[in-house]
Nucleic acid binder design. Structure first.
Lengths: 123, 123
DNA sequence: CCGAGTTATCGTATTTCGCCGATGAACGAT
DNA sequence: ATCGTTCATCGGCGAAATACGATAACTCGG
């Protein structure tokens, strides 16, 4: 039971603080087609249509560095639930995930966020 | 089959073009509380999370004012379905409806739209 | 008052969402 | 090779969303 042999404190250290997702500075390509623009905005809005997902996006936006599954620690939800929220955000293109060893590093897709802002602004 | 020799175009002769909704210039009060802001943005985004509702909002933004019947004509959906989408938008505060005789005049709530834009911009 | 026209609501079927615990897959370290 | 950590996926459940037709409610003109 109590075996912990002087656990090295560097256990929790991760060096992936540097970067996970390249800039990806893509211009917000607003679709010309009306119906397509509606569908795009609807998909992005739907992805944000849950407080937990808004919180995730805010969390990723606040930290410069992309956090991994520490998101689970910040939300009062089970790990599997958070994972599904992340999958939904990823499906909508709002975030991207990069495998970094055993973890996955998530970060905002700035292009998608810019597109969302442009579409909302154009209402 | 072909029928209706008389013009089917004379079915609409409204004159309630005036306007229905007063300005409603409300400042976009962004909630200070983090969780509340998340919930507010999520609710607004959820209301926009369907192409038909985006189309409705765009339609109302383009025209000064609209009536439910015209919206039904623009969308490939049944009247009851459109009415439910309108109810959802109204519940989220994005639009307002004012009874004008036998019809209902819907219009955007500029305050809510401004709040949405502010919340999205603040991502 | 009674039709005609317009919108809201009801009832219902199908699909999707949101949540969880449990299990599986991938990786680093031992 | 095995273990521990991390994350995704599966199965299941209840709730909500989406769609439609049918029907009620409401207002105006005759």
């Amino acid at each position: 039971m109590n075996d912990l042999p002087t656990a090295p404190t560097s256990r929790r250290k991760r060096k992936a603080e540097a970067r996970c997702c390249p800039p990806s500075e893509v211009a917000p390509v607003v679709p010309r087609d009306r119906a397509e623009a509606d569908a795009r905005l609807a998909a992005l809005a739907k992805a944000l249509g849950h407080p937990a997902r808004v919180a995730i996006v805010r969390l990723l936006a606040r930290r410069e560095t992309c956090v991994c599954g520490e998101i689970v620690d910040e939300l009062p939800l089970a790990q599997s639930t958070v994972s599904q929220h992340l999958a939904q955000l990823k499906r909508a293109g709002l975030i991207r995930g990069e495998v970094d060893g055993p973890r996955v590093c998530y970060c905002l897709d700035e292009g998608a966020v810019a597109l969302l802002k442009a579409l909302v602004e154009g209402l």
